[in-house]
Amino acid sequence: MFVKDTQSQTLIQVLDPSELFNPVHDQVLGRQQAGEEEQPPQAFPKSQLQFPSGEALPQCWIDPDYQLK
């Protein structure tokens, strides 16, 4: 699955989508898709990620207390 980093505007390949869907995790492990060579995995904060279309990630993926609000 791919998401976009809002700061660098590059695509990020999420290595384990379950980390992205789990609101308890505030970071995901992914590879930045910049250049021709595959980049090493690194942690990206979910607060800086969005869908490639520019839409924000759903609150149920980010906030573990989303149902209490």
Score class of each variant (00 low, 15 high):
S47A: 15
A56I: 03
Q9G: 06
L57N: 04
E37Q: 11
L49P: 01
A43I: 00
G35S: 04
L15C: 09
A43M: 10
I62P: 01
I12L: 11
L20K: 05
G30T: 12
T6Q: 14
A56F: 01
C60L: 05
P41M: 03
L57K: 05
Q67G: 00
S53Y: 00
Q39N: 11
L49S: 01
A34D: 09
P17K: 06
V28E: 03
L57Y: 02
L49R: 04
G54P: 03
N22H: 05
D63Q: 04
L68C: 03
P58L: 04
Q42E: 14
Q13S: 08
T10N: 12
G54Y: 09
H25C: 15
P40R: 07
W61N: 05
Q7L: 10
P52R: 01
D26N: 11
Q67S: 05
V3K: 02
Q32T: 11
A34V: 13
Q67L: 12
R31G: 02
L49T: 06
E36T: 08
H25Q: 08
E36H: 01
L68W: 12
N22Q: 03
P41I: 07
P64E: 06
R31Q: 15
M1L: 14
C60S: 13
E38G: 05
E36A: 10
R31F: 01
P45R: 13
P41C: 02
P58V: 03
Q48Y: 03
Q59A: 12
P23T: 07
A43F: 12
D5Q: 09
V3G: 06
P17M: 05
Q42K: 15
L68S: 11
L11Y: 11
I12T: 05
Q50V: 02
S8K: 10
F44D: 02
Q13P: 00
Q50D: 05
M1K: 10
E37M: 04
P40M: 04
G30H: 10
D26S: 11
E38Q: 11
F51C: 07
Q50K: 09
S47I: 09
Q27R: 14
G30N: 09
M1E: 15
L49Y: 01
M1I: 13
S8D: 07
Q9E: 15
Q48L: 12
V3Q: 03
E36N: 07
P58H: 02
D5I: 05
Q13T: 10
Q50W: 00
K4T: 06
G35R: 01
E37N: 08
F2N: 15
S8E: 08
I62S: 02
G35W: 00
Q32D: 00
A34E: 12
C60Y: 10
S18A: 12
Q9F: 07
K46L: 07
K46H: 04
Q32K: 12
C60E: 14
